[in-house]
Nucleic acid binder design. Structure first.
Lengths: 340, 340
DNA sequence: GATTTTTTGATTTACGTACATCAAATTTGG
DNA sequence: CCAAATTTGATGTACGTAAATCAAAAAATC
């Protein structure tokens, strides 16, 4: 049977109340006594029964998700996953609130963070906008002992406890290798469709993509990036224009707005064979993968990201360890054969 | 605040004891009264606080893992993950025991299952050997209300509650498409290295592989399968022999024993370019992927499988729902750029 | 050495559920 | 309608921890 507080009290030769004071870092314990208790805890291998403690405390975990107000399938999916998590709240003792902030607006994000520092949630998950002000605000909150995880887009160099998202440089590199290998000996040009180069994840994907292509597939040249602003209409126009260039043999779509891309491809590619890699599995990209308009889809599992963020925040709030391997968000590669 | 048993008692106009009798299906409650209580439960949306219940019951979850006594890296990894889970047992209230049975021995497996039916663990996770006797034994246990999940290798057609493993047909299909696309216009022969065709997962991978290759890459012919019995030495010999055939352009290794394969490839392929797809990420295959001996690795995450099996068994034991998406084991595709 | 301050002990209640006991009420059978 | 059987209520204890209160003991201060 695992030891309880009573066993600790007995072993340390102190009362239950003192053990409680030590465990919950309450004042009024002499240094030597505190050490006696801590030794007993270590020797008996005591671990607090979190379930019983939460029951006694009537604890809930108030969590806040800060998301950009972007209208694309990925963000919709992320929102849906958060709603699913809210449905599980009673069982998980969470109390989840979502705050939307204008996209790409560091100032707005910072002011939300500052507001939260007064409200005292027990954890914050945020899609980070990469700016010095944001980094400073996050660091300040972390120092005030707020658990913070970044979601989907990281804030490198900050003190955030964890990042629940994929390695976007690796994603770009993977896309490049897949495209390069699929094209084999063919030479030609590659069109890259991004949302905006202001977004860190898009920049990173591009960075990974270009470096592998340059190093290992010198016969493939990257055309100037098309910034489709994650808007299907814009993407459609840009891709249609680009495909006028007969030298294009492949397309890498590293952002959202794939609906427009797919439409453009279907109109143009009746007579030519293009190799296409896109990000994010949605009903549209899935259909395009199945009908061979797209050759591979790279994806991050929004559900996993949300569940992972919640698990990590709860663990940090309780000062517990996380299972690193479980919280690693992988880059999913889908061909038409391994779709979920 | 979520409702408690007291609220149910008040709402149904009965005593706490009666609510308890209904909740824990104890006898001595008239039909009408039981319905009153059940209505109140439904109307108030009562959900039992599993943590508090487990505390009161002093409940632990005795789980059994049944594994084949196979000496290959994947099974070693699986074992290691189970040991990790054992370390987490105190916090998760699990009590995990592992039983090894001779591989490919339905009779041994059945007798272990029969023994377990007396011992009453609250859940069983098993690497299934695909045989009618095993299926019958599993079905019998399921009817006796034992939660059972199959692990790594499924028992199709049985009543098992869940399968914690990858779709091996999809894995084979994916391997075929990757190989076909990587080879592009090249024609030639493909060597397939398997462990044993007696193992269901290997048969399924081969099935998926051959069907996609036949349908979509008619220029690639599959040579007779090499059965390496997951033994590096045997694999080395078989592959070395096969590579005498100058027409071979690709290799698909769908089982274990990759150490022998890799050695054979390094010896032979100085002068030729082979495209190689292998299963299971191990230190050896990882190194081979990085030095371009292997082009892609398909993998199943043993850690995820073990954790998932435990979550599902606990949920089934408590009659709770599982998060389907969370328990889906994906086929990981690793190129050298997205290694974990 | 008396007084104040700090530290410790003893005890109680609570969280939400499980489970046991015994008495009281109700229903059923004859 | 009475006795027997069944159903229900009332109550208490337990699980492991948190948190509060008040008294007692020890240490520090003057």
């Amino acid at each position: 049977m695992r030891p309880t507080v009573h066993d600790i009290a007995a072993a340390a030769g102190v009362s239950l109340a003192t053990v409680d004071r030590v465990l919950n870092q309450r004042p009024g314990v002499r240094h030597v006594t505190r050490e006696k208790v801590e030794n007993a805890i270590r020797e008996l291998g005591y671990i607090r029964d979190v379930a019983a403690a939460n029951l006694a405390k009537g604890r809930t975990y108030p969590l806040v998700f800060i998301l950009p107000a972007s209208d694309n399938s990925f963000m919709h999916g992320l929102n849906a996953e958060i709603r699913q998590a809210v449905l599980r709240s009673p069982a998980e003792r969470t109390d989840i609130r979502t705050i939307e902030v204008p996209a790409f607006d560091p100032t707005a994000l910072v002011s939300v963070l500052e507001e939260l520092s007064r409200e005292k949630p027990c954890g914050i998950a945020m899609v980070a906008t990469d700016a010095p002000d944001v980094r400073a605000a996050v660091d300040r909150l972390v120092r005030e002992r707020f658990p913070i995880v970044t979601l989907v887009s990281d804030l490198t160099g900050s003190l955030r406890h964890h990042y629940a998202g994929v390695d976007n440089i690796a994603a770009g590199r993977t896309a490049a290798r897949l495209l390069g290998r699929f094209l084999g000996p063919r030479k030609g040009e590659i069109a890259v469709l991004a949302g905006s180069m202001l977004v860190r994840d898009h920049r990173e994907r591009l960075e990974g993509f270009t470096s592998v292509l340059a190093e290992e597939f010198p016969d493939l040249a990257i055309l100037p990036v098309l910034e489709g602003r994650d808007d299907p209409e814009v993407a459609h126009r840009l891709v249609t224009d680009a495909l006028g260039n007969a030298g294009i043999v492949g397309v890498y779509s590293l952002g959202a707005g794939n609906r427009g891309l797919i439409r453009a491809l279907k109109e143009k590619s009746v007579d030519r064979t293009l190799t296409v890699i896109a990000h994010e599995l949605t009903p549209h990209t899935r259909a395009a993968l199945l009908d061979n308009t797209i050759d591979a889809i790279l994806n991050q599992d929004a559900g996993h990201e949300v569940r992972s963020a919640i698990r990590v925040l709860k663990a940090k709030a309780d000062g517990l360890a996380v299972i690193e391997a479980q919280e690693r968000i992988r880059l999913d590669i889908f061909l038409k054969d391994n779709l979920p």
